[in-house]
Nucleic acid binder design. Structure first.
Lengths: 112, 112
DNA sequence: GCTTGACTTAGAGTATACTCCAGGTTTTAT
DNA sequence: ATAAAACCTGGAGTATACTCTAAGTCAAGC
């Protein structure tokens, strides 16, 4: 898959894909004559990264996770801790969003 | 209430409170000898703004809402539209967060 | 009355996450 | 073979939302 195809499939700019690679949020993509050719594994990683970014995980923590992953089995527990912490943050965020929806519903009710 | 008290009550910096006032996300606070003295109405507005910011609303849209509010009754419908749109965005965000939690639960399960 | 600490302002600086640009290479279609 | 389109790199620029700094004002205690 070319960078353009990935870009279109996930509605993300080519610049962002190169940027993620540059800062190590995704692994260096294999190339043909210097041109990126994304494989299934790479696509799966990108999908994960995009889902996590949409949930507010920083690129820094995503790079950290990838670095741990690439260090192998010995980092399993560190990864478990990292993912568990991030999950807790997201759940807290969900609560905040629900509170905001409640407030908005109240204000919307007053306006109708 | 002084700026310090508000800052402590809501765990937000004094700088941020001044910043919100400067850019018009909250109304000019009444002062005594040039020093801010937050009243009940002002506190309520700040609470709303903080809840909305926590939910991801931009300071720009919050300013827009306040501007409409201060223009009076004639902007009721515009405000309704604005709040309804923002609510929809938050609900979409909640879905994304839930998807991320699902993915994380799966990964966490594999690590345990 | 003078120092200390909290407050004020305008404006500069920072962090995060892209996004764009210049100048060069490769692929594709004619 | 060649022109146009798509790709590459390193690095500069931008948007958002603060956060900090400098220089000055104000209130309270000694």
């Amino acid at each position: 898959m070319t960078i353009k195809e990935v870009s279109e499939k996930y509605a993300i700019s080519e610049d962002t894909l190169r940027y993620y690679e540059k800062i190590g949020v995704i692994r260096p993509v294999t190339r043909k004559n210097g041109i990126r050719n994304y494989g299934d594994q790479e696509i799966a990683n990108i999908e994960f990264v995009l889902c996590m970014r949409a949930a507010g995980l920083s690129v820094k923590v995503l790079k950290q996770y990838l670095d741990l992953y690439d260090k192998g089995e010995s980092t399993k527990n560190e990864r478990l801790v990292l993912l568990t912490e991030e999950k807790a943050k997201i759940e807290k965020k969900i609560d905040e969003l629900n509170r905001a929806v409640d407030k908005l519903n109240y204000k919307i009710g007053l306006l109708k």
